[in-house]
Design a protein around this nucleic acid. Sequence first.
DNA 1: TATTGTTATACTCTATAACTATA
DNA 2: TATAGTTATAGAGTATAACAATA
Lengths: 160, 160
Amino acid sequence: MSMASRTNSGTPASNDRLWDSVVGNDLSFRLARANALSLAGVHAALAEYDLRVRSYSVLAIAAEGSRPSQRELSEFLRLDPSQIVALVDDLESRGLVRREPDPQDRRANVLVATDGGRELFRAARAASRRAEQEFLAPLGALGAPLDAALRMLAGAPDAD
Amino acid sequence: MSMASRTNSGTPASNDRLWDSVVGNDLSFRLARANALSLAGVHAALAEYDLRVRSYSVLAIAAEGSRPSQRELSEFLRLDPSQIVALVDDLESRGLVRREPDPQDRRANVLVATDGGRELFRAARAASRRAEQEFLAPLGALGAPLDAALRMLAGAPDAD
DNA sequence: TATTGTTATACTCTATAACTATA
DNA sequence: TATAGTTATAGAGTATAACAATA
């Protein structure tokens, strides 16, 4: 049965009996494991640019000119406002983004990428996409339904 | 936790423009966000039993009689051996699992659940499954392809 | 009075290196 | 020499409370 060829290169065959357990058949567990593997690939790709997944996300949104407030970033990325402060501090100290005062609300900052930030983002985005596509390659036609399912589970607005 | 608005009617509409970005359209990001929401639900369900997702996973595998070594758990759960030590220490101190010497390799321990451990596992499994099903409910027919896709991405052995 | 950004703190998670006893 | 388990430690991620400036 499970002696067939595996997508799991390098792992001892003895683990098959662990996969055949409640945990191994748990969708939450597979989701967590897939996410860990995905993160590892993207993280390795971004390391070359001294970016982590979280700082890349902040830089990406700023680089696209969305002009988000830190509060909006906090909600969207599911990070505490205090974590956004640390992320923006780091990116700003590296000259990749700027805090600009929001003319409509002087309490709020609006995040803008510098030219250097946009340039770094473009390179990092290419590397990130290569890693993602390599990770998703074995999926084949399952890619589309996975995308639709994750869109729902992640709470994204309805697709057009 | 409850900010995963289905139709996004509760969240400020301004976030829609963040979803419409490179990050929001990134499958890795959606995977991470879906995983975070899934984990939050399971975590809340397991908290009643003083279990975390990790300790639940170890307890579950032990309770099913797989008699795993700590090394096998380390590979399967993608945790460092030293983390397994801490998890097993905790479960053993609570009388839920026992370390038994492996007669074939005196370096290795084999993990066995106690009667109390099996009992707690059954209750925790029921709660965990309720949380998972609630989380997956909106998927409908997308559940099956999601399961197949995650099985591949997680590196599970081929289905029978 | 409520909200934005900030500081501070603590706790969990993750990663690594070194040690021991066995193989 | 290599492996299973253990100990120790440091860094990253997460959660919370309190505060100043502004709404």
